[in-house]
């Protein structure tokens, strides 16, 4: 038997969950995009960041287990950064850095969705 020729088949159950994650990713993107827009207005910024963090935290918790390691790692870093910011939100430069990181995450999600659409 040629062992090298044998490929590891992905677990069908995990594949199904991965598909479910991908199909919900557009909704996650839309929610984050909408919350990001609220930061430009007069909204309670800490409350908005808390909502953003909850969604980023969820992506960070699951993306890595479904084959999206880079997305998971970026979300994890942003999750931690928002937590630290919310614990002492005095510095506007920190918020600008967070906003830039959020934009980067949204770009990543966008790219994943485009790649899926093209596949």
């Amino acid at each position: 038997m040629n062992m090298q020729a044998r490929e590891v088949q992905p677990d069908p159950a995990i594949t199904a969950i991965r598909e479910k994650f991908l199909s919900g990713l557009e909704t996650r993107l839309a929610e984050l995009d909408s919350l990001s827009g609220l930061l430009k207005g007069e909204a309670n910024r800490a409350r908005v960041w808390e909502e953003i963090r909850l969604r980023v935290h969820r992506i960070a918790g699951v993306a890595g287990s479904l084959g999206f390691a880079a997305l998971g790692a970026r979300s994890g870093r942003l999750d931690t950064a928002i937590e630290h910011y919310l614990n002492k939100p005095a510095n506007p430069r920190d918020e600008a850095t967070l906003s830039a990181a959020l934009e980067g995450l949204l770009d990543d999600i966008d790219q994943i969705l485009e790649e899926q659409a093209a596949a």
Binding site: D11, A13, I14, I17, K20, F21, G24, G61, V62
Partner: peptide, 17 residues
């Protein structure tokens, strides 16, 4: 868990174990 995807993942991993 508040994320249904995580609950799906746990159900699968636990079932396989």
């Amino acid at each position: 868990d508040d994320d249904p995807i995580i609950l799906d993942l746990l159900r699968t991993v636990l079932s396989e174990a």
